[in-house]
Design a protein around this nucleic acid. Structure first.
Lengths: 108, 108
DNA sequence: CCCGGTACCTGGCAAAGTCAAGTAGCTGCC
DNA sequence: GGCAGCTACTTGACTTTGCCAGGTACCGGG
């Protein structure tokens, strides 16, 4: 399970430069999320769009059907930055619990 | 959302020393998971027990109803160690995607 | 002309967390 | 004695979200 960070990852990738679903799937797979499925990503993108965090436009491709490029909206950027801090905070907490005394001791 | 790390946190806390649900809720809240609810923790503990990762016994208390103490099983310990590496791997991946743009300035 | 790669969508499912409420033992206060 | 309030666990309905499977469709090459 991706534990709900997927939307965050998508926002982040798209915030660099607009991109389309299929490409995002491939990028995430290469980043180490090998068993990530299209059936997971596309709905996630749709949700983000319907929440107004992403915008999209169709662009014809010469190598296949039209691609749906997504770009981040201001609301999406806000969500992203809030989400990143939430994630960092959670990750720190989890790490401090999971890792034995060595690091748990001088964590804040 | 705690996104699936909760079982891991519980296994970890219990692996230190056996403990009961209510106490675990309080400990996790103090660790920074303030909006964590009993309704989240108790079912999570039950699931872990039904999967054979935790064992339990009832112990009468002088300050209220009997407490259900959980202790980790060998299977639970295995699950824990596997889960920790999975988490750390995921965390690393997520961090590497998220970090680049969120300038290093508001890191810890 | 069909196959394989590109590209998207959908519906049904299951796991896990949230919310809300309920049950019940215990202490202390009036 | 009764009630408030803390302790402690349980349960049910609901929602999100990821997983799986399948479907549609455009394209180039053998």
């Amino acid at each position: 399970m991706l534990k709900g960070v997927l939307p965050l990852l998508l926002l982040r990738l798209v915030s660099d430069a607009e991109d389309y679903g299929y490409s995002l799937v491939l990028r995430l797979q290469e980043l180490g999320l090998a068993d990530l499925n299209e059936g997971t990503v596309y709905p996630a993108l749709s949700r983000l769009e319907s929440r107004g965090l992403l915008g999209s436009r169709l662009v014809p491709s010469t190598t296949g059907p039209a691609r749906k490029y997504y770009e981040i909206t201001p609301a999406g950027a806000a969500e992203l930055s809030g989400g990143v801090s939430a994630w960092e905070s959670l990750a720190r907490t989890v790490h401090s619990v999971l890792s034995p005394a060595t690091s748990a001791r001088n964590q804040r």
